[in-house]
Nucleic acid binder design. Structure first.
Lengths: 190, 190
DNA sequence: TTAAAATCTTAATCTACTTCAAGAAATGAA
DNA sequence: TTCATTTCTTGAAGTAGATTAAGATTTTAA
């Protein structure tokens, strides 16, 4: 798979001429990653931004009690990275791992910075993407504050039924903020 | 108060020449807002971004059971807005209100867009700001998932002791995700 | 095609909170 | 300086969801 998907995604938000498209093409490094492989491990510096061409990634950390807590999922046409580590250059406090076999376009952070200088539209694109990601994150907080675990599950299940099929239940439970046992009980009700 | 604070804040992240500074100055409209006044009410379209020169804002919504839930606080040198509404042009699902007498610099969204065209550094500035805000929001999620209410309070209290003094306890409780009664009990322990 | 690994279920017990209710204290406006 | 409003406290009773533990099922790999 080429990164046509990515270019057309960018093109949804900003205008690019053919020259800029060609330059951008050269910035992205496509990779096929097998299920359960890590793109980033806690303690490593995060040096790139990952765009999912096809597949699924999760970002998670390990709690003091040794359980995994999932902060983010990302599927086709989403970017995922640890912006904290990217920004600060400090080791990441998160892991990024494939949930299934996944094709990603990798944008190295240094190359991204170079790109911002050469192609201002790229910076605009990320400004827009980040604005949306931030807004989504605020909405996520809202759901967590307001809804019960059960409500959150039903809401998520109604919103993304295919995705719920695709990912193990214990990961979904973690993402939604409760235990796999509790999710099992919710499902048993119907 | 002028918006020197704001210009020097921008200057921390991007370079501006004198001409650009002058243009930017003209974009911001400074206002003094009394305690408990609203800058945005649920149902209204959000049309501006607010930079706090001095004071404190909160962003909150009303739950189904009629209680206030605070999503964000913002103090000196922070931006606050509802990016969802700003982006989509749809009515906001949030309120933005002053917690104390506050001086804000207001950047109207249309003017912001115009600014992005004239001054690419402005778009870069917001790209950087949003990257930080998004990362902070992910960390907030992490605290909510991992720590107990009591832990969250102590952590917050240690991190921002002056702020805890400044804001009513029931607002702090809401922001931290529990009831004012519970906060009262935590405090009674020591 | 079978054993090992990963995932899901069920049930009993436990706990970090919420809710409700009522009074006390602090703050603010006339 | 006083009354009204806002904020904070305390205690009793209730609950959403965690924890533990063990078995059942599904998936994976050799």
């Amino acid at each position: 798979m080429t990164n046509e998907n990515l270019l057309s995604h960018i093109h949804k938000f900003v205008l690019l001429n053919d020259n800029e498209k060609a330059i951008l093409q050269s910035y992205f490094k496509n990779e096929t990653v097998k299920k359960k492989e890590h793109l980033l491990k806690e303690g490593q510096k995060c040096t790139a931004n990952y765009f999912i061409l096809k597949g699924c990634l999760r970002m998670y950390y390990i709690t003091e009690t040794g359980t995994e807590q999932i902060v983010q999922f990302a599927i086709d046409n989403w970017w995922l990275t640890d912006y904290s580590s990217l920004d600060s250059g400090k080791p990441s406090q998160f892991n990024i791992q494939t949930v299934e076999n996944t094709e990603v376009a990798i944008l190295d952070n240094k190359i991204q910075e170079e790109g911002f200088k050469k192609i201002p539209a790229l910076e605009r694109y990320f400004r827009i993407i980040l604005q949306k990601a931030y807004a989504a994150s605020i909405m996520r907080l809202r759901y967590i504050f307001t809804q019960s675990g059960e409500e959150r599950f039903h809401h998520f299940n109604n919103s993304f039924p295919e995705f719920v099929q695709r990912v193990p239940q214990y990961m979904l439970a973690s993402y939604l903020g409760f235990t796999p046992e509790f999710l099992s009980k919710i499902r048993a009700k119907k």
